Simulated assay, not measured.
Amino acid sequence: MTMEDNLTARIRHFVEDNFLFREDADELANDESLLDAGLIDSTGILELVSWIEAEFGVRMADAEIVPENLDTIAAIAAYLGRKRPASLVA
Score class of each variant (00 low, 15 high):
V15C: 01
S87G: 15
A29I: 04
T72H: 13
D41F: 12
L7W: 11
D71N: 13
E55N: 11
A29V: 00
V89T: 11
A61P: 00
G81W: 06
E55F: 08
A63F: 00
L20W: 15
L88N: 09
D31A: 12
M3G: 14
G44T: 11
P67N: 01
S87A: 15
E47V: 05
I52R: 10
A63Q: 12
K83S: 15
E64P: 00
I76F: 12
V15M: 09
A25K: 15
V66M: 03
P67G: 03
R84F: 03
G44K: 12
N30Q: 09
A54K: 14
P67K: 03
R12F: 08
V49L: 08
D36P: 00
A75S: 14
F14I: 01
S87R: 11
G81C: 03
D26R: 13
R22L: 03
L35T: 08
S87D: 15
L80K: 08
R10W: 03
R59H: 00
R10Y: 04
S33I: 06
T72P: 10
L20V: 13
S33K: 13
L80P: 03
S33V: 04
A86K: 05
T43S: 05
I76R: 07
L70Q: 09
E53T: 00
P67C: 00
D5R: 06
I73A: 06
R82V: 06
F21H: 15
V89Y: 11
A54I: 05
V15Q: 05
I76H: 06
E47Y: 13
A78F: 02
D24W: 10
V66Q: 08
G44I: 03
I52P: 09
D41A: 10
E23H: 15
S87Y: 11
G38M: 02
A29K: 14
A78Q: 01
D17P: 04
E32H: 14
A9C: 03
S50I: 04
E27F: 12
I52L: 15
E53N: 02
A29N: 07
S42I: 09
R12P: 04
G81V: 01
A61M: 10
E4A: 08
L20D: 05
L28N: 02
A77Q: 04
L48D: 09
L39E: 04
G38S: 08
I76L: 04
L70W: 11
I65M: 11
F21D: 12
S50W: 06
P67A: 02
R22K: 11
L39Q: 03
I45E: 11
D26E: 13
Y79D: 00
N69R: 02
A90I: 04
L28D: 04
H13A: 02
I73R: 00
E64F: 01
L48S: 10
A63R: 12
D36K: 12
A75E: 08
I73K: 07
A37H: 10
L48Y: 13
L7C: 07
L48V: 10
G81R: 04
R82N: 14
E4S: 01
L39Y: 15
